[in-house]
Design a protein around this nucleic acid. Structure first.
Lengths: 193, 193, 193, 193
DNA sequence: AATGAATGAGCCTTCATTCAT
DNA sequence: TATGAATGAAGGCTCATTCAT
């Protein structure tokens, strides 16, 4: 997905792209394979050449989308930066990625809230996830962040961002740069020591 | 729902209760009307006497669940209480209700994340919603809370609670009284002036 | 099947009857459920009300057909009759039943030659089967039949009847009373001591 | 099949061999062309270079298998031999061939019991078939065999052999040399004058 | 000759909804 | 009110066959 401009994989890619668009909009159970096929310009049969089943198609899509999002979030991250700057980087990357890829956000939310068996995340994803976790554990160890369990710190930061983005998408607020800036300040107050 | 004196409505109630249980567990599209019927001990046909369609059943369920939850959250609320106590009341009521009614939380999340047309909330629900909004607007006006748009304040408080609860349900953390207490403190830091 | 002139079971019966006719003529894999439905005058969906799957439908049909045939073959059988008369009775009953129910014969042959898991025969069927086996074991014990394993005696009698019937159906011969009479004589020569 | 010098036909042969193996085991309708292709190590497309359709492939296979079997059965046959020895030769050849080529037997049985249009047997096959028929007509004319229609004589001999073999394959008996010997005696009793 | 991606018709099965009773 | 048999429209998937390469 995303890459592979032409040649083999073109079709597989078109299928994944159409699936992402459709499922994020209509939901998994409301997106027949035949619709994915027609939107991506292929026959229904060929989908089973690239994926074993509709379910496997979703799983594959999840893996690709998750990786894409995690890499966006940690883009430019370095332990050389001060904590506050690293926090801002995560925050801004997240906001930017979701605003420019709302289908990905909707899809991931659906998938992770559904009764799908969440596959073990591939290493490539875990690498990024670990950088984020490391940020919080190091921050606590260095006395920069409050001594709270990492999941709580995540709720106080990522959880807020997610909530803001949801409201933005729903139209309850407009998440512009200014609003984002005050929100990130408030979050930092919540997590910093 | 839940209550209902006796006689008429008994059956309607049983249907709604079964639907809530099943849908929260299996999802809307994975819950056939026939299953709701058999679990609630009625025939499939009679469901169409009480509801025009499967969709309408869901909508009705949403209204009842939403009201039940909002009333729980504002239980004991009074503008006579100091701001911080009111905030704690919302917080504790929310945590308590979700922990004791996880099906409701799961159902609402599914519903509000789905492509269902969200119906206009009935007045009874709006009454409770308005008390919450009022808390924030008054708090800002009185200089107790930061001068941020209400939706942002909501993300910084309700959003955090929701995130914590989700992680609790997923097993990522155990949301006991202590953890809840430190989290509410952190949230207060984030929203108070 | 066969019985149940009216009332409940009518439809189930019609389905089984159509399935027998169609499958014996066209084969299992060439007989779509939709065709069984239209021939029996019901909708495709209702078939799954009476049977769990196409496979189970076949299994049920097998059970009913097998029982019907076995009962026809042993009709009028009694250990009071002399061995030769009992043998003639089996022989004539078999011929008569197959000639008047060729679909049953074709269906059973297909089923028993297929890779279906042959279900354990129900007791009702085993009762009839045992009477036949008993005939051979007793006959050997009483010195009336050659001292050969029962399966071999079966091949020398039942096997010949089956072969003749197959040729009759294929048009290679006409199995009239006279031919049947000389054949049964020859078979008796083959198995009698 | 089986033979074929080298080069051209190699692939056609591999296809037929795989088809025989697979179809005898899984049945015609349960053997996709794609499976025949992968087992025989060729592409699915090329099969349509050698055969016009899946059906034609089966018909061709039938012709080759039938010829192979008939030639095995008449191997060593000569009108110079006494009738009883010729009969034993047919019998033993049949048993031997089927025991060493069970796939062929299974395939032929399926084919001949199916609703395939049985093709006119090629001359090469008819030559062998005629030698067998001639054996019976001559035997009757010479007073060695009972004066019965050839098909009846066939049922009394070939039919018995087929039945025994089926039971052997099904595990109902073990067709060793001794059992074969007593069975052939019994059959001879049934057909000899 | 050969490959294997691609097509599209058809199959089994599910399920929301209706209707005779 | 209440039942549950019945319908019919999809939906996921398979597979014989074609075709660009």
């Amino acid at each position: 997905m995303i890459q592979d401009a032409a040649g083999t994989g073109d079709k597989r890619d078109a299928i994944l792209r159409a699936a992402l668009e459709l499922i994020s909009e209509r939901g998994f159970h409301n997106t027949p394979v035949s619709l994915i096929a027609s939107v991506s310009g292929v026959s229904a049969g060929i989908i089973y050449h690239y994926f074993d089943s509709k379910d496997e198609l979703i799983q594959a899509l999840y893996g690709e989308v998750k990786l894409d999002m995690m890499r966006s979030i940690t883009l430019g991250y370095s332990t050389d930066l001060p904590y506050r700057e690293r926090f801002d980087l995560f925050w801004n990357n997240s906001i930017r990625h979701v605003l420019s890829h709302p289908e990905q956000a909707k899809f991931l939310e659906q998938f992770e809230n559904s009764s799908f068996v969440e596959p073990t995340l591939p290493n490539a994803v875990m690498v990024e996830v670990n950088r984020i976790i490391e940020f919080y554990t190091d921050g606590v160890a260095d006395g920069v962040l409050r001594d709270l369990p990492v999941p709580v710190l995540l709720s106080l930061s990522t959880g807020v961002a997610a909530s803001l983005l949801k409201q933005h998408v729903a139209g309850a607020l407009v998440l512009d740069e200014d609003l984002s800036a005050v929100a990130v300040d408030a979050c930092w107050d919540a997590i910093s020591a």
